[in-house]
């Protein structure tokens, strides 16, 4: 009971920040308000028992995104503002809202409940059981998720790291500046 009320108030906060971020005409204010959105999302991830995702959201949302966006508006022009909020195109809002409601209406009832007996993950129960039973003997890592990410599919993760590194190098080339010198 208390849990669901906490979730509902948090959802109201997140929706409010997201809509305000989209509607602000002044980009600097939008960046600041986007920081508040990131705060709400971090609390929500924590509430859903995913503190690792919340830590990433804290580092990326509050730290990196703000600085990257500030660098972007430093390189471009900041439009002068005559009014505070963007004009809302209501027919578009209605159309997109109806589309989203139809999507949720069709998709959400098909989703399997958390911990359900007939969840698709149990269709390959042998595979799931293998990782649960043998992870520590195979890799010496206590957390099964970490073991799958860093050991069983280690080359895949390495490839992802290479992609992220290449993207970082590309950003530095575009900025034409030694930011960490």
């Amino acid at each position: 009971m208390t849990m669901s009320w906490f979730a509902y108030t948090l959802m109201v906060f997140i929706l409010l920040t997201a809509v305000t971020t989209a509607l602000f005409r002044d980009v600097l204010s939008a960046i600041v308000v986007f920081g508040a959105y990131s705060l709400g999302m971090a609390i929500f991830y924590t509430f859903l028992l995913a503190p690792d995702v919340a830590m990433t959201e804290a580092a990326i949302g509050a730290g990196v995104t703000t600085i990257l966006l500030l660098l972007t508006i430093a390189r471009t022009t900041r439009p002068s503002t005559d009014r505070l909020f963007e004009r809302v195109h209501w027919p578009g809002v209605v159309a997109v809202g109806a589309f989203a409601i139809v999507l949720l209406w069709t998709v959400l009832p098909e989703m399997v409940a958390v911990g359900a007996e007939d969840a698709p993950v149990w269709a390959n129960a042998d595979v799931t059981q293998y990782y649960i039973q043998h992870t520590y003997d195979d890799t010496g890592v206590q957390n099964a998720v970490t073991a799958v990410l860093a050991a069983y599919r280690g080359f895949d993760t390495f490839g992802e790291a290479v992609v992220v590194f290449a993207a970082g190098v590309a950003v530095l080339i575009v900025l034409k500046r030694e930011v960490f010198a």
Binding site: L28, I31, V32, G35, L39, A42, T46, L49, P51, A54, M55, A58, A59, A62, G63, T66, I67, L70
Partner: peptide, 22 residues
């Protein structure tokens, strides 16, 4: 879940960063 405090600590550190940057 005491390890949620780690997230709180990270936020306490990073909350400062945005104010300094802006």
């Amino acid at each position: 879940e005491p390890w949620f405090l780690d997230v709180a600590l990270i936020y306490a550190l990073l909350n400062f960063l945005m104010a300094v940057a802006i």
